[in-house]
Design a protein around this nucleic acid. Sequence first.
DNA 1: GAGGTATAAATTTTCGATAATCTATTGACG
DNA 2: CGTCAATAGATTATCGAAAATTTATACCTC
Lengths: 225, 225
Amino acid sequence: MNEQSTLNATVFGLLREDILTGRLRPGERLRAETLRQRYDVGGSPVREALMRLESEGFVSLEQNKGFKVSGVSLADLEDLTRTRIEIENIALRWSIAKGGVEWEALLVGALHRLSSVPKRASDGEAGRNSDWLRYHREFHSALVAACDSPTLSSIRDRLFDQAERYVSLAIASQGEFRDDVSEHAALMNAAISRDAETALRLNRAHIERTTEKLKKTSDFKMMDV
Amino acid sequence: MNEQSTLNATVFGLLREDILTGRLRPGERLRAETLRQRYDVGGSPVREALMRLESEGFVSLEQNKGFKVSGVSLADLEDLTRTRIEIENIALRWSIAKGGVEWEALLVGALHRLSSVPKRASDGEAGRNSDWLRYHREFHSALVAACDSPTLSSIRDRLFDQAERYVSLAIASQGEFRDDVSEHAALMNAAISRDAETALRLNRAHIERTTEKLKKTSDFKMMDV
DNA sequence: GAGGTATAAATTTTCGATAATCTATTGACG
DNA sequence: CGTCAATAGATTATCGAAAATTTATACCTC
Protein backbone atom coordinates (compact mmCIF):
# COMPACT_ATOMS: atom_id res chain seq x y z
CA MET A 1 0.00 0.00 0.00
CA ASN A 2 2.87 2.34 0.79
CA GLU A 3 5.24 3.32 -2.03
CA GLN A 4 7.12 0.07 -1.25
CA SER A 5 9.74 2.09 0.56
CA THR A 6 10.39 1.58 4.25
CA LEU A 7 9.87 4.42 6.68
CA ASN A 8 13.51 4.21 7.55
CA ALA A 9 14.55 4.85 3.95
CA THR A 10 12.08 7.69 3.62
CA VAL A 11 13.26 9.43 6.75
CA PHE A 12 16.84 8.92 5.67
CA GLY A 13 16.17 10.69 2.41
CA LEU A 14 14.25 13.54 4.00
CA LEU A 15 16.80 14.11 6.72
CA ARG A 16 19.63 13.98 4.23
CA GLU A 17 17.91 16.52 2.05
CA ASP A 18 17.17 18.80 4.99
CA ILE A 19 20.80 18.76 6.03
CA LEU A 20 22.19 19.10 2.52
CA THR A 21 20.06 22.13 1.77
CA GLY A 22 20.70 23.76 5.10
CA ARG A 23 17.15 23.57 6.42
CA LEU A 24 18.78 21.86 9.35
CA ARG A 25 21.72 24.04 10.32
CA PRO A 26 25.24 22.81 11.04
CA GLY A 27 25.68 21.94 14.70
CA GLU A 28 21.93 21.88 15.30
CA ARG A 29 20.86 19.32 17.81
CA LEU A 30 18.68 16.48 16.55
CA ARG A 31 16.42 15.39 19.37
CA ALA A 32 14.61 12.12 18.89
CA GLU A 33 11.22 13.53 19.87
CA THR A 34 11.60 16.54 17.57
CA LEU A 35 12.44 14.36 14.59
CA ARG A 36 9.64 11.94 15.32
CA GLN A 37 7.17 14.78 15.13
CA ARG A 38 8.84 16.40 12.14
CA TYR A 39 8.60 13.25 10.03
CA ASP A 40 5.67 11.67 11.85
CA VAL A 41 7.25 8.28 12.57
CA GLY A 42 8.41 6.24 15.53
CA GLY A 43 11.81 6.23 17.12
CA SER A 44 13.28 3.25 15.30
CA PRO A 45 13.24 4.56 11.74
CA VAL A 46 14.63 7.89 12.92
CA ARG A 47 17.44 6.25 14.81
CA GLU A 48 18.34 3.96 11.95
CA ALA A 49 18.37 6.81 9.48
CA LEU A 50 20.61 8.81 11.78
CA MET A 51 23.04 5.92 12.05
CA ARG A 52 23.42 5.80 8.31
CA LEU A 53 23.83 9.56 8.08
CA GLU A 54 26.46 9.41 10.76
CA SER A 55 28.40 6.93 8.71
CA GLU A 56 28.18 9.25 5.72
CA GLY A 57 29.37 12.22 7.74
CA PHE A 58 26.21 14.33 7.72
CA VAL A 59 25.50 13.97 11.41
CA SER A 60 27.68 13.22 14.37
CA LEU A 61 26.85 11.07 17.35
CA GLU A 62 28.07 11.34 20.88
CA GLN A 63 27.38 8.28 23.03
CA ASN A 64 24.28 8.73 25.14
CA LYS A 65 24.15 12.41 24.26
CA GLY A 66 22.42 12.20 20.94
CA PHE A 67 22.91 13.33 17.39
CA LYS A 68 23.56 16.69 15.85
CA VAL A 69 24.06 17.98 12.34
CA SER A 70 27.74 17.84 11.48
CA GLY A 71 29.51 21.13 11.94
CA VAL A 72 31.19 23.05 9.19
CA SER A 73 34.48 24.87 9.35
CA LEU A 74 37.03 26.51 7.13
CA ALA A 75 39.52 23.76 7.89
CA ASP A 76 37.04 21.07 6.89
CA LEU A 77 36.12 22.87 3.68
CA GLU A 78 39.77 23.18 2.72
CA ASP A 79 40.52 19.55 3.52
CA LEU A 80 37.45 18.46 1.63
CA THR A 81 38.45 20.53 -1.38
CA ARG A 82 42.00 19.25 -1.42
CA THR A 83 40.82 15.65 -1.29
CA ARG A 84 38.02 16.17 -3.71
CA ILE A 85 40.31 17.60 -6.38
CA GLU A 86 42.49 14.51 -6.30
CA ILE A 87 39.63 12.08 -6.42
CA GLU A 88 37.59 13.90 -9.03
CA ASN A 89 40.70 14.04 -11.18
CA ILE A 90 41.39 10.34 -10.95
CA ALA A 91 37.82 9.62 -11.92
CA LEU A 92 38.02 12.15 -14.73
CA ARG A 93 41.22 10.65 -16.11
CA TRP A 94 39.70 7.18 -16.13
CA SER A 95 36.50 8.49 -17.62
CA ILE A 96 38.34 10.22 -20.45
CA ALA A 97 40.29 7.04 -21.13
CA LYS A 98 37.27 4.76 -21.23
CA GLY A 99 34.41 6.97 -22.37
CA GLY A 100 32.85 6.43 -25.78
CA VAL A 101 30.36 8.30 -27.89
CA GLU A 102 27.53 7.52 -25.47
CA TRP A 103 29.46 9.29 -22.75
CA GLU A 104 30.09 12.27 -25.02
CA ALA A 105 26.38 12.51 -25.73
CA LEU A 106 25.60 12.41 -22.04
CA LEU A 107 28.02 15.26 -21.45
CA VAL A 108 26.69 17.43 -24.26
CA GLY A 109 23.18 16.99 -22.99
CA ALA A 110 24.15 17.75 -19.42
CA LEU A 111 25.92 20.95 -20.42
CA HIS A 112 22.92 22.02 -22.45
CA ARG A 113 20.59 21.59 -19.52
CA LEU A 114 22.97 23.43 -17.23
CA SER A 115 23.25 26.31 -19.69
CA SER A 116 19.49 26.65 -19.85
CA VAL A 117 19.19 27.78 -16.23
CA PRO A 118 19.31 31.58 -15.85
CA LYS A 119 22.55 32.87 -14.43
CA ARG A 120 21.02 34.41 -11.36
CA ALA A 121 17.94 33.42 -9.43
CA SER A 122 15.40 35.85 -10.80
CA ASP A 123 13.27 37.82 -8.35
CA GLY A 124 13.89 35.62 -5.40
CA GLU A 125 12.44 32.64 -7.14
CA ALA A 126 13.88 29.91 -4.95
CA GLY A 127 13.09 27.16 -7.43
CA ARG A 128 15.92 28.21 -9.71
CA ASN A 129 18.54 27.42 -7.16
CA SER A 130 17.49 23.84 -6.84
CA ASP A 131 17.33 23.47 -10.61
CA TRP A 132 20.79 24.86 -11.03
CA LEU A 133 22.13 22.67 -8.25
CA ARG A 134 20.62 19.60 -9.84
CA TYR A 135 21.90 20.29 -13.33
CA HIS A 136 25.29 21.26 -11.98
CA ARG A 137 25.50 18.04 -10.04
CA GLU A 138 24.45 16.06 -13.09
CA PHE A 139 27.00 17.74 -15.32
CA HIS A 140 29.89 16.93 -13.03
CA SER A 141 28.53 13.47 -12.52
CA ALA A 142 28.45 13.01 -16.30
CA LEU A 143 32.09 14.04 -16.56
CA VAL A 144 33.18 11.04 -14.52
CA ALA A 145 30.35 8.71 -15.52
CA ALA A 146 32.58 6.59 -17.76
CA CYS A 147 35.26 5.93 -15.15
CA ASP A 148 33.76 2.48 -14.68
CA SER A 149 34.69 2.06 -11.04
CA PRO A 150 31.90 1.59 -8.52
CA THR A 151 34.31 2.03 -5.64
CA LEU A 152 35.75 5.30 -6.85
CA SER A 153 32.37 6.57 -7.98
CA SER A 154 30.75 6.12 -4.62
CA ILE A 155 33.63 7.92 -2.92
CA ARG A 156 33.39 10.75 -5.39
CA ASP A 157 29.64 11.05 -4.95
CA ARG A 158 29.95 11.23 -1.20
CA LEU A 159 32.55 13.97 -1.34
CA PHE A 160 30.52 15.87 -3.88
CA ASP A 161 27.53 15.80 -1.54
CA GLN A 162 29.61 17.08 1.33
CA ALA A 163 30.85 19.93 -0.82
CA GLU A 164 27.37 20.70 -2.03
CA ARG A 165 26.28 21.32 1.52
CA TYR A 166 28.74 24.18 1.72
CA VAL A 167 27.39 25.56 -1.54
CA SER A 168 23.82 25.34 -0.29
CA LEU A 169 24.71 27.06 2.94
CA ALA A 170 26.43 29.86 1.06
CA ILE A 171 23.48 30.27 -1.29
CA ALA A 172 21.05 30.32 1.62
CA SER A 173 22.98 33.10 3.29
CA GLN A 174 23.72 35.01 0.11
CA GLY A 175 20.87 34.37 -2.27
CA GLU A 176 22.79 33.38 -5.38
CA PHE A 177 25.94 31.79 -6.60
CA ARG A 178 28.36 31.92 -9.50
CA ASP A 179 27.48 29.94 -12.56
CA ASP A 180 30.12 30.25 -15.26
CA VAL A 181 28.85 28.40 -18.29
CA SER A 182 32.02 28.94 -20.29
CA GLU A 183 34.05 27.27 -17.58
CA HIS A 184 31.96 24.15 -17.81
CA ALA A 185 32.02 24.24 -21.60
CA ALA A 186 35.81 24.40 -21.70
CA LEU A 187 36.01 21.50 -19.31
CA MET A 188 33.68 19.44 -21.41
CA ASN A 189 35.52 20.21 -24.64
CA ALA A 190 38.83 19.15 -23.18
CA ALA A 191 37.27 15.94 -21.96
CA ILE A 192 35.59 15.08 -25.23
CA SER A 193 38.72 15.83 -27.25
CA ARG A 194 40.53 13.46 -24.88
CA ASP A 195 42.94 16.14 -23.75
CA ALA A 196 43.35 14.70 -20.28
CA GLU A 197 46.01 17.13 -19.11
CA THR A 198 43.90 20.17 -19.90
CA ALA A 199 40.73 18.63 -18.54
CA LEU A 200 42.38 17.77 -15.24
CA ARG A 201 43.89 21.22 -14.95
CA LEU A 202 40.55 22.89 -15.65
CA ASN A 203 38.74 20.60 -13.26
CA ARG A 204 41.17 21.41 -10.49
CA ALA A 205 40.86 25.12 -11.18
CA HIS A 206 37.08 24.86 -11.28
CA ILE A 207 36.87 23.22 -7.88
CA GLU A 208 39.42 25.58 -6.37
CA ARG A 209 37.61 28.62 -7.73
CA THR A 210 34.33 27.40 -6.29
CA THR A 211 35.88 26.97 -2.88
CA GLU A 212 37.50 30.42 -3.03
CA LYS A 213 34.14 31.95 -3.75
CA LEU A 214 32.62 29.99 -0.91
CA LYS A 215 35.22 31.20 1.51
CA LYS A 216 34.44 34.79 0.62
CA THR A 217 30.67 34.54 0.77
CA SER A 218 30.40 32.28 3.80
CA ASP A 219 30.47 33.39 7.36
CA PHE A 220 32.07 30.51 9.17
CA LYS A 221 31.78 32.30 12.48
CA MET A 222 28.04 31.96 12.14
CA MET A 223 27.85 28.42 10.80
CA ASP A 224 30.67 26.92 12.76
CA VAL A 225 30.02 23.68 14.59
CA MET B 1 28.03 0.00 35.14
CA ASN B 2 28.68 -1.11 31.58
CA GLU B 3 31.96 -0.11 29.94
CA GLN B 4 30.29 3.19 29.06
CA SER B 5 29.75 1.91 25.54
CA THR B 6 26.27 1.49 24.12
CA LEU B 7 25.09 -1.93 23.05
CA ASN B 8 24.71 -0.62 19.57
CA ALA B 9 28.38 0.34 19.38
CA THR B 10 29.44 -2.97 20.85
CA VAL B 11 27.41 -5.01 18.41
CA PHE B 12 28.69 -2.85 15.58
CA GLY B 13 32.28 -3.64 16.54
CA LEU B 14 31.66 -7.35 16.99
CA LEU B 15 29.75 -7.72 13.77
CA ARG B 16 32.36 -5.75 11.89
CA GLU B 17 35.10 -7.96 13.27
CA ASP B 18 33.18 -11.14 12.47
CA ILE B 19 32.73 -10.04 8.88
CA LEU B 20 36.27 -8.72 8.45
CA THR B 21 37.80 -11.93 9.69
CA GLY B 22 35.49 -14.14 7.71
CA ARG B 23 33.72 -15.74 10.66
CA LEU B 24 30.61 -14.54 8.90
CA ARG B 25 30.98 -15.65 5.30
CA PRO B 26 30.34 -13.44 2.26
CA GLY B 27 26.75 -13.65 1.13
CA GLU B 28 25.63 -15.20 4.42
CA ARG B 29 22.21 -14.16 5.49
CA LEU B 30 21.95 -12.13 8.70
CA ARG B 31 18.63 -12.92 10.32
CA ALA B 32 17.55 -10.62 13.09
CA GLU B 33 16.75 -13.42 15.50
CA THR B 34 20.05 -15.20 14.87
CA LEU B 35 22.06 -12.07 15.56
CA ARG B 36 20.05 -11.24 18.67
CA GLN B 37 20.98 -14.59 20.11
CA ARG B 38 24.58 -14.44 18.89
CA TYR B 39 25.24 -11.13 20.64
CA ASP B 40 22.57 -11.42 23.30
CA VAL B 41 20.83 -8.09 22.68
CA GLY B 42 17.51 -6.80 21.44
CA GLY B 43 16.51 -5.96 17.93
CA SER B 44 17.24 -2.25 17.97
CA PRO B 45 21.00 -2.32 18.56
CA VAL B 46 21.39 -5.05 15.96
CA ARG B 47 19.43 -3.15 13.39
CA GLU B 48 21.28 0.11 14.02
CA ALA B 49 24.65 -1.61 13.80
CA LEU B 50 23.62 -3.23 10.53
CA MET B 51 22.61 0.14 9.12
CA ARG B 52 26.05 1.55 9.80
CA LEU B 53 27.75 -1.50 8.37
CA GLU B 54 25.61 -1.21 5.29
CA SER B 55 26.80 2.34 4.82
CA GLU B 56 30.38 1.14 5.11
CA GLY B 57 29.86 -1.60 2.58
CA PHE B 58 30.24 -4.64 4.84
CA VAL B 59 26.65 -5.73 4.61
CA SER B 60 23.95 -5.18 2.03
CA LEU B 61 20.28 -4.54 2.65
CA GLU B 62 17.36 -5.41 0.48
CA GLN B 63 14.14 -3.66 1.46
CA ASN B 64 11.93 -5.91 3.57
CA LYS B 65 14.13 -8.87 2.82
CA GLY B 66 16.81 -8.32 5.37
CA PHE B 67 20.56 -8.03 5.53
CA LYS B 68 23.37 -10.23 4.35
CA VAL B 69 27.13 -10.08 4.44
CA SER B 70 28.38 -8.27 1.36
CA GLY B 71 29.46 -10.60 -1.38
CA VAL B 72 32.95 -10.79 -2.76
CA SER B 73 33.97 -11.18 -6.37
CA LEU B 74 36.97 -10.94 -8.60
CA ALA B 75 35.59 -7.84 -10.25
CA ASP B 76 35.12 -6.13 -6.89
CA LEU B 77 38.61 -7.07 -5.74
CA GLU B 78 40.11 -5.65 -8.89
CA ASP B 79 38.10 -2.43 -8.71
CA LEU B 80 39.00 -2.09 -5.06
CA THR B 81 42.68 -2.59 -5.80
CA ARG B 82 42.71 -0.09 -8.64
CA THR B 83 41.05 2.55 -6.49
CA ARG B 84 43.09 1.77 -3.44
CA ILE B 85 46.39 2.21 -5.25
CA GLU B 86 45.45 5.70 -6.32
CA ILE B 87 44.21 6.77 -2.94
CA GLU B 88 47.01 5.21 -0.93
CA ASN B 89 49.45 6.91 -3.24
CA ILE B 90 47.94 10.34 -2.79
CA ALA B 91 48.04 9.91 0.95
CA LEU B 92 51.60 8.64 0.75
CA ARG B 93 52.73 11.59 -1.35
CA TRP B 94 51.22 14.05 1.11
CA SER B 95 52.64 12.15 4.03
CA ILE B 96 56.15 12.20 2.58
CA ALA B 97 55.82 15.91 1.97
CA LYS B 98 54.60 16.79 5.43
CA GLY B 99 56.08 14.12 7.69
CA GLY B 100 58.81 15.04 10.19
CA VAL B 101 61.08 13.10 12.46
CA GLU B 102 58.19 11.96 14.62
CA TRP B 103 56.65 10.34 11.60
CA GLU B 104 59.93 8.67 10.72
CA ALA B 105 60.17 7.26 14.23
CA LEU B 106 56.65 5.91 13.97
CA LEU B 107 57.55 4.17 10.73
CA VAL B 108 60.74 2.63 12.03
CA GLY B 109 58.92 1.29 15.04
CA ALA B 110 56.10 -0.10 12.96
CA LEU B 111 58.48 -1.91 10.65
CA HIS B 112 60.33 -3.38 13.58
CA ARG B 113 57.14 -4.78 15.07
CA LEU B 114 56.09 -6.18 11.71
CA SER B 115 59.48 -7.84 11.25
CA SER B 116 59.23 -9.52 14.61
CA VAL B 117 56.33 -11.71 13.57
CA PRO B 118 57.43 -15.10 12.21
CA LYS B 119 57.01 -15.44 8.50
CA ARG B 120 54.61 -18.32 8.63
CA ALA B 121 52.04 -19.22 11.22
CA SER B 122 53.85 -21.86 13.19
CA ASP B 123 52.10 -25.12 13.90
CA GLY B 124 48.64 -23.90 13.16
CA GLU B 125 48.87 -21.29 15.85
CA ALA B 126 46.06 -19.03 14.79
CA GLY B 127 47.20 -16.16 16.98
CA ARG B 128 50.05 -15.34 14.66
CA ASN B 129 47.77 -14.39 11.84
CA SER B 130 45.97 -11.78 13.83
CA ASP B 131 49.27 -10.37 15.11
CA TRP B 132 50.68 -10.13 11.63
CA LEU B 133 47.48 -8.59 10.32
CA ARG B 134 47.56 -5.98 13.07
CA TYR B 135 51.19 -5.03 12.60
CA HIS B 136 50.79 -5.01 8.87
CA ARG B 137 47.83 -2.71 9.14
CA GLU B 138 49.70 -0.45 11.50
CA PHE B 139 52.74 -0.25 9.26
CA HIS B 140 50.74 0.85 6.25
CA SER B 141 48.76 3.20 8.43
CA ALA B 142 52.02 4.72 9.65
CA LEU B 143 53.17 5.28 6.09
CA VAL B 144 50.32 7.69 5.45
CA ALA B 145 49.92 8.95 9.01
CA ALA B 146 51.46 12.33 8.23
CA CYS B 147 49.20 13.14 5.30
CA ASP B 148 47.25 15.43 7.59
CA SER B 149 43.91 15.03 5.88
CA PRO B 150 41.02 13.61 7.90
CA THR B 151 38.90 13.27 4.80
CA LEU B 152 41.46 11.33 2.80
CA SER B 153 42.50 9.28 5.80
CA SER B 154 39.02 8.03 6.51
CA ILE B 155 38.57 7.03 2.88
CA ARG B 156 41.89 5.23 2.90
CA ASP B 157 41.05 3.40 6.11
CA ARG B 158 37.74 2.22 4.75
CA LEU B 159 39.30 0.86 1.58
CA PHE B 160 42.05 -0.81 3.55
CA ASP B 161 39.47 -2.60 5.67
CA GLN B 162 37.64 -3.80 2.60
CA ALA B 163 40.86 -5.15 1.18
CA GLU B 164 41.76 -6.78 4.45
CA ARG B 165 38.61 -8.83 4.31
CA TYR B 166 39.87 -10.44 1.12
CA VAL B 167 43.18 -11.15 2.82
CA SER B 168 41.45 -12.71 5.82
CA LEU B 169 39.29 -14.87 3.61
CA ALA B 170 42.33 -16.07 1.70
CA ILE B 171 44.21 -16.83 4.89
CA ALA B 172 41.22 -18.67 6.32
CA SER B 173 41.03 -20.88 3.25
CA GLN B 174 44.76 -21.30 2.87
CA GLY B 175 46.29 -21.06 6.32
CA GLU B 176 49.03 -18.52 5.71
CA PHE B 177 49.99 -15.58 3.61
CA ARG B 178 53.03 -13.91 2.13
CA ASP B 179 54.97 -11.57 4.34
CA ASP B 180 57.91 -10.02 2.57
CA VAL B 181 59.81 -7.95 5.09
CA SER B 182 62.29 -6.60 2.57
CA GLU B 183 59.44 -5.22 0.50
CA HIS B 184 58.17 -3.20 3.42
CA ALA B 185 61.67 -2.09 4.37
CA ALA B 186 62.36 -0.76 0.88
CA LEU B 187 59.08 1.11 0.95
CA MET B 188 59.91 2.65 4.29
CA ASN B 189 63.40 3.68 3.22
CA ALA B 190 62.13 5.42 0.13
CA ALA B 191 59.56 7.25 2.22
CA ILE B 192 61.99 8.36 4.89
CA SER B 193 64.55 9.51 2.35
CA ARG B 194 61.74 11.52 0.78
CA ASP B 195 62.06 9.78 -2.55
CA ALA B 196 58.41 10.13 -3.42
CA GLU B 197 58.64 8.67 -6.91
CA THR B 198 60.22 5.45 -5.70
CA ALA B 199 57.94 5.17 -2.70
CA LEU B 200 54.83 5.56 -4.83
CA ARG B 201 56.11 3.02 -7.33
CA LEU B 202 56.90 0.50 -4.61
CA ASN B 203 53.59 1.08 -2.90
CA ARG B 204 51.71 0.45 -6.11
CA ALA B 205 53.72 -2.69 -6.76
CA HIS B 206 53.17 -3.89 -3.20
CA ILE B 207 49.41 -3.57 -3.43
CA GLU B 208 49.30 -5.10 -6.88
CA ARG B 209 51.44 -8.03 -5.79
CA THR B 210 49.20 -8.67 -2.82
CA THR B 211 46.15 -8.74 -5.03
CA GLU B 212 47.81 -11.08 -7.49
CA LYS B 213 48.59 -13.49 -4.71
CA LEU B 214 45.03 -13.21 -3.48
CA LYS B 215 43.66 -14.01 -6.88
CA LYS B 216 45.72 -17.17 -7.01
CA THR B 217 44.94 -18.45 -3.55
CA SER B 218 41.28 -17.51 -3.42
CA ASP B 219 38.47 -19.54 -4.76
CA PHE B 220 35.92 -16.99 -5.84
CA LYS B 221 33.55 -19.68 -7.00
CA MET B 222 33.20 -20.69 -3.40
CA MET B 223 33.05 -17.28 -1.79
CA ASP B 224 31.10 -15.47 -4.45
CA VAL B 225 28.10 -13.45 -3.34
C1' DG C 1 27.96 33.28 47.58
C1' DA C 2 30.98 28.98 46.18
C1' DG C 3 31.06 24.37 45.95
C1' DG C 4 29.23 20.09 46.23
C1' DT C 5 25.49 16.57 46.65
C1' DA C 6 21.00 14.74 46.22
C1' DT C 7 16.79 14.93 43.68
C1' DA C 8 13.97 15.72 39.59
C1' DA C 9 13.43 16.37 34.68
C1' DA C 10 14.75 15.51 30.10
C1' DT C 11 16.82 12.59 26.73
C1' DT C 12 18.83 8.65 24.86
C1' DT C 13 19.02 3.72 24.54
C1' DT C 14 16.96 -0.67 24.67
C1' DC C 15 13.39 -4.10 24.94
C1' DG C 16 9.12 -6.75 23.92
C1' DA C 17 5.16 -6.83 21.24
C1' DT C 18 2.44 -5.58 17.11
C1' DA C 19 1.95 -4.59 12.27
C1' DA C 20 3.51 -5.19 7.68
C1' DT C 21 5.80 -7.81 4.26
C1' DC C 22 7.72 -11.67 2.12
C1' DT C 23 8.11 -16.89 1.41
C1' DA C 24 6.48 -21.57 1.33
C1' DT C 25 2.67 -24.73 1.09
C1' DT C 26 -1.55 -26.39 -0.08
C1' DG C 27 -5.40 -27.17 -2.89
C1' DA C 28 -8.53 -25.92 -6.59
C1' DC C 29 -9.17 -25.58 -11.43
C1' DG C 30 -8.05 -25.87 -16.25
C1' DC D 1 0.41 -32.34 -14.45
C1' DG D 2 0.96 -27.33 -14.29
C1' DT D 3 -0.51 -22.84 -13.03
C1' DC D 4 -2.62 -19.85 -10.12
C1' DA D 5 -4.83 -18.26 -5.75
C1' DA D 6 -5.43 -18.53 -1.05
C1' DT D 7 -3.70 -19.51 3.24
C1' DA D 8 -0.17 -20.37 6.85
C1' DG D 9 4.43 -19.61 8.44
C1' DA D 10 8.59 -16.99 8.81
C1' DT D 11 10.93 -12.67 8.81
C1' DT D 12 11.37 -7.81 8.72
C1' DA D 13 9.90 -3.15 10.05
C1' DT D 14 7.75 -0.25 13.32
C1' DC D 15 5.74 1.27 17.51
C1' DG D 16 5.15 2.38 22.48
C1' DA D 17 6.85 1.72 26.94
C1' DA D 18 10.62 0.62 30.22
C1' DA D 19 15.47 1.12 31.55
C1' DA D 20 19.68 3.67 31.61
C1' DT D 21 22.03 7.86 31.15
C1' DT D 22 22.71 12.65 31.06
C1' DT D 23 21.38 17.36 32.24
C1' DA D 24 19.12 20.70 35.12
C1' DT D 25 17.44 22.16 39.61
C1' DA D 26 17.09 22.54 44.50
C1' DC D 27 19.16 22.22 48.74
C1' DC D 28 22.63 22.04 52.19
C1' DT D 29 27.22 23.17 54.11
C1' DC D 30 31.02 26.11 54.80
